[in-house]
Design a binder for these strands. Structure first.
Length: 104
DNA sequence: CTTTTGACTGAGT
DNA sequence: AACTCAGCCAAAA
């Protein structure tokens, strides 16, 4: 397991409840802006979905993965709603309100 | 070993 | 504004 993967998991686990982060954002935080694809891959591997809130990680549009997830795309949206995350008409997460800003 | 694909993003047309 | 193309890295075939 690459150290980068562990760093990704660490950041994802550090996302506050009710907030979401983007793949590119996480990659940038880790100092590897070009690793956005790998960030998604790291979550795809998802070695510990119970402690890794991958449902809080979305693409830069705020759209959910859509592909197979720990419990399915519906489960992901369901969890976000349970945490107080709101969605717009487009079915995407309201980034302006729930985008995680660790730098602040 | 080489090739393909992917839970992405940004730039170009 | 919408669609297409290319770049990036790692894991799977």
């Amino acid at each position: 397991m690459s150290a980068f993967f562990e760093r990704v998991y660490n950041v994802v686990k550090d996302i506050p409840r009710g907030k979401v982060a983007t793949y590119g954002q996480i990659a940038t935080i880790l100092g590897a802006p070009r690793f956005s694809q790998v960030v998604g891959y790291a979550l795809h591997a998802n070695p510990d979905p119970r402690h890794i809130p991958c449902h809080r990680v979305v693409n830069r549009f705020g759209a959910l993965s859509g592909s197979f997830a720990f419990g399915g795309a519906d489960e992901q949206k369901k969890r976000l709603l349970a945490e107080g995350v709101t969605f717009d008409e487009n079915g995407n997460v309201d980034m302006e309100k729930h985008l995680w800003r660790p730098s602040l």
